[in-house]
Design a protein around this nucleic acid. Structure first.
Length: 939
DNA sequence: GACCCGACTTGTTCCTACCATG
DNA sequence: CATGGTAGGAACAAGTCGGGTC
């Protein structure tokens, strides 16, 4: 690609349209953003993008991408570009503001923490005995927080320097977004740690007041240490995904420092005999081959010299794959067979197998009626034969989507003011103003990108006169409108019972009519049958398009997809559909293109549907298949660490990260999106290499923003060879250069497909998540424990996965408060127990010398004490659970990564009602698994 | 083979109905 | 009965990946 950026300094003008992002452009480099012309070239690849930036930044001659590789040399010689770069003062302000905000958070949290810390010391003594990972965790905490604080405090030093050295754009981004997000995440993390501390401290408190609560904390410790032991015994190799933050999480005790270290040790020992110096020198000639050429080359290589074993593997696997259909799963998982049998027997038993319209050729309509009458019918599609011809349905009928209600103008007493003067807006302008007014209290409105975008788009819908007048957002007074919307929602909240009921009924009506479709003779729930209402686009992170107007979708924008022979949905009167098509190779019922990002949006089925369920099932089957060949694949990529070809090496290291850390693939993104990365798109600035850190060798510190601009921070001891490779990869590169400059997701996935049919980068995530759950469940579940304890164990296993996958969430608003309350409760309970114990002592004394009556009384008191202790235990479990979950979102992994059959099997095996694990929706979604998996299911 | 885009999965946040609690 | 907290679900953004096109 000729990344020759025609744009140079002058171009930044156009770039500015997009707001903030380009503010840093400062004429130093082109703002690619706006002009479509540029877009294409920019879109090309983020790699190029960054390169461009650097190039421009350097102000040196432009390199065409083909000379990319040469860049290295150039860069090395001109490593100094840093100094030239400073972020605009604006940015600085911005950032510092943000920082301040999060600092505030910090401080309040700090208070919390310090309180806890006070309590902590006694406890720690107590704990040390068990060598629980809590201790380790604490250490880790310290390390982390110290490193964190270092980072924060030295934001002007090392970090800033780094940023400075990178291009402006980058700088900007990394500063505002990065810093903020980082701060946020950092603080979240800190919080997390703190909370743990808190947690433990509270325990300490108690322990100091006598190890009354021993029971629960001991249990926890036990679990922890047990899990540790288990882990210790089996050194975690590559195949043990590293759980992030494990170190501070009791439940993941195994993973943390120890395991990772052990893995390192292990690997090291493996390589001891191969002195580093013997690392095959990187083939320089290879290096200079541009990606495209390289690709071709790679092919050759892989066909020939590369790895014969691989090929063999390939072949054998392919065979398997080819035959793979659902029935074939039995072939490779014997474990499944028995289950199926069980299943069917169960089925016959519980002949809830109401109506199974299934394979009989009965007319869809008949079936439909039948189903309507028998509401609770379950379509056991998973017992049917699967067709695999790419068609998703043969019959599809639905009513079309539901459109957003039309705009209702504001009452005349609600006014808008511009520059202090009342101004009656035209309806369109008013509607859009309303979108902004609703968000007045939201953080978004403090972001200049948001405001700029909003104003630009708002003015587009204004009448010429309005547009002429309204040019400055800061002169707009939306307060009355805002207040009005608040009062409306207030009113809505206070609706009377009848009103609410009426509303509910109405919604149900709509749901009934539009919320279902008929597909291949079955009535199935639709997921999102409502078309998104107009509003302001809220991108996540530092999205360059935030604040833009998402316009109202009209029937004329909407594509309808259904059977030719179905009753075709009617468009709202006076309108027509953009198109009606009959494409049975796709699963959507309707689609439209959203105007902000030009992305297609779809109306699709609910997760409980066959279409989704089947896909889900398939996903886990692929992951299980990976399980079967993961060892080979690992072997394979480890071998590739020594490959001559740089591309292969990079691929191997990337794969290692994906496998071990469950990173996402990391597609390239264009400039119109927030700057986030995944594995393949990691840049040099996202990792730090430490030969030694906190007593561990070869530590790689990852710090980047991933999907949804969620920060990923992880310190991972890696194998020496990986480390050395990384050193090579970053050699002579700038911070903003791609770490894996020879790699992208396509190449990676192509390679993976060769290793195992159906294998892609994300399968590793699924696989590692599921396998982790299974292992953790095995480790953490005490067969004799009570159901609540088992549930805690489950949640902990789940949490381990969430941590692995970096599923975070904002700390719930009232968290600290509710924790306080809970703690008070616990304390009260403890006091009660204290009393009860004293009572008991006296009573027992009395009983010893005394009468039957006294003995009885003593027994009673004993029982009372037991009861209290039980209650306390429960509360403490609750506390632990809630606290540990504060910043971790369990839902995503539960819904998307964990083979539901593992959970189902666990429930069945341990007598835990499935309802305790899956709520109604989840049970609907996983009906197939619930029906299918017996207690012996193994992933 | 680069590029683009369609289709589908994954992910977080926001809202609200519901529930426990005082 | 009010209140506050929360689970659950809706909303919708943001990924992944494959395939078509030029």
């Amino acid at each position: 690609m000729s990344v020759e950026n025609p744009a140079s300094d002058n171009d930044c003008e156009s770039g500015k349209v997009n707001g903030n992002k380009n503010e840093h452009v400062n004429g130093m480099h082109n703002g690619y953003s706006s002009s479509d012309k540029h877009k294409s070239s920019h879109k090309s690849s983020s790699k190029d993008k960054h390169r461009d930036k650097d190039r421009d930044h350097k102000g040196s001659s432009k390199h065409s991408s083909s000379s990319r590789d040469k860049d290295k040399d150039k860069h090395s010689s001109s490593k100094e570009h840093s100094s030239s770069h400073k972020s605009s003062s604006k940015d600085k302000e911005h950032n510092s503001e943000k920082r301040d905000r999060s600092d505030k958070d910090h401080s309040s949290r700090d208070k919390e923490r310090s309180d806890k810390d006070k309590h902590r010391s006694d406890k720690d003594k107590h704990r040390e005995k068990s060598k629980s990972d809590k201790d380790r965790r604490d250490e880790k905490d310290k390390n982390k927080s110290s490193s964190d604080s270092k980072k924060t405090s030295s934001s002007s030093s090392s970090r800033d320097k780094e940023h400075k050295s990178s291009s402006k754009d980058k700088d900007h981004k990394s500063k505002s977004k990065d810093e903020k997000d980082k701060d946020r995440h950092r603080s979240d993390k800190d919080k997390h740690h703190r909370d743990k501390d808190k947690h433990s401290s509270s325990k300490d408190k108690n322990s100091s007041s006598k190890n009354k609560e021993k029971s629960s904390s001991e249990r926890n410790e036990k679990i922890k240490s047990e899990s540790q032991n288990v882990i210790k015994d089996e050194p975690m190799e590559v195949d043990q995904p590293v759980l992030k933050r494990e170190q501070d999480d009791s439940d993941e005790g195994y993973a943390g420092a120890n395991t990772t270290v052990s893995s390192c040790d292990y690997s090291m020992s493996q390589f001891k005999d191969e002195p580093l110096s013997e690392l095959p020198p990187d083939d320089e000639s290879e290096e200079d081959i541009p990606l495209t050429a390289r690709k071709a080359k790679k092919r050759h290589v892989s066909d020939g010299e590369e790895d014969i074993p691989l090929l063999q593997r390939k072949k054998s696997k392919k065979k398997v794959k080819k035959e793979e259909t659902y029935e074939d799963y039995d072939d490779y998982e014997e474990d499944e067979k028995p289950k199926k049998k069980k299943k069917s027997s169960e089925k016959t038993k519980s002949v809830k197998v109401k109506s199974e319209p299934i394979d009989d050729g009965i007319s869809p309509n008949k079936r439909k009626k039948k189903q309507d009458t028998e509401t609770e019918q379950v379509w056991k599609w998973w017992e049917e034969e699967k067709t695999d011809d790419g068609t998703k349905w043969t019959f599809l009928e639905h009513k079309g989507p539901v459109f957003a209600p039309p705009y209702e103008p504001l009452p005349s007493n609600v006014k808008f003011y511009y520059d202090g003067k009342e101004l009656k807006l035209s309806e369109d302008a008013e509607e859009v103003a309303g979108f902004y007014a609703r968000m007045l209290e939201h953080d978004y409105t403090t972001k200049s990108v948001f405001n700029t975008n909003f104003l630009t788009d708002w003015r587009k819908v204004m009448t010429p006169e309005e547009a002429k007048l309204i040019k400055d957002l800061s002169k707009c007074n939306f307060k009355e409108m805002h207040a009005y919307f608040q009062s409306v929602s207030e009113k809505n909240r206070n609706r009377s019972k009848e009103e609410k009921a009426a509303l509910k009924a109405k919604n149900e009506e709509i749901q009934k009519e539009y919320g279902f479709c008929t597909i291949d003779g079955h009535k199935e729930k639709i997921g999102n049958f409502r078309i998104e209402p107009p509003g302001l686009f809220r991108g996540r992170g530092e999205h360059p398009k935030m604040g833009k107007l998402k316009r109202r979708v009209m029937p004329e924008d909407v594509l309808i997809n259904c059977s030719k022979d179905s009753k075709i949905p009617k468009p709202p009167s006076g309108h027509k559909w953009r198109e009606v098509r009959h494409d049975n190779t796709v699963t959507w019922l309707a689609s439209w293109t959203e105007n902000v990002q030009q992305q297609a949006k779809y109306v699709m089925l609910n997760p409980s549907s066959k279409l989704k369920g089947e896909k889900d099932w398939q996903k886990y089957e692929t992951a299980r298949k990976l399980h079967k060949c993961i060892d080979k694949i690992r072997e394979n990529y480890r071998a590739d660490w020594k490959a001559k070809e740089m591309q292969v090496r990079q691929r191997a290291v990337a794969l290692y990260f994906i496998d071990r850390l469950a990173l996402r693939a990391g597609n390239e993104k264009d400039d119109e999106q927030a700057d986030t990365v995944g594995c393949c798109s990691l840049r040099v600035e996202h990792i730090q290499l430490h030969k030694e850190k906190d007593g561990k060798e070869y530590v790689v510190v990852f710090d980047f923003l991933g999907k949804d601009s969620i920060r990923y921070y992880n310190e991972v001891p890696v194998e020496k060879r990986v480390f050395k490779n990384l050193e090579i990869f970053i050699e002579n590169k700038k911070d903003s250069d791609d770490l894996f400059d020879r790699l992208n997701t396509q190449t990676l996935n192509e390679h993976l497909k060769d290793l195992m049919p159906g294998l892609t980068a994300k399968v590793f995530r699924t696989y590692n998540a599921s396998i982790t759950l299974q292992k953790q469940l095995d480790e953490l579940t005490d067969g004799d424990a009570s159901v609540p304890e088992k549930i805690l164990a489950y949640n902990r296993a789940n949490r381990a996965v969430a941590i692995l996958c970096n599923h975070q969430r904002a700390v719930p608003k009232g968290h600290s408060k509710s924790m306080e309350a809970l703690k008070e409760k616990i304390q009260a309970k403890r006091d009660q127990i204290d009393e009860a114990e004293e009572d008991l002592q006296q009573a027992s004394k009395a009983a010893k010398r005394g009468s039957v009556k006294e003995k009885l009384a003593c027994d009673k008191k004993k029982k009372a004490l037991e009861r209290l202790k039980d209650q306390l235990k429960k509360l403490e479990l609750q506390e632990t659970d809630r606290d540990e979950n504060k910043t971790i979102a369990l839902g995503t992994s539960k819904l998307n990564y964990l083979d539901p059959r593992i959970s189902v099997a666990w429930c069945k095996k341990h007598g835990v009602p499935i309802e305790k694990i899956y709520n109604k929706t989840q049970r609907d979604k996983f009906r197939w698994a619930i029906d299918m998996a017996g207690p012996d299911y193994v992933f």
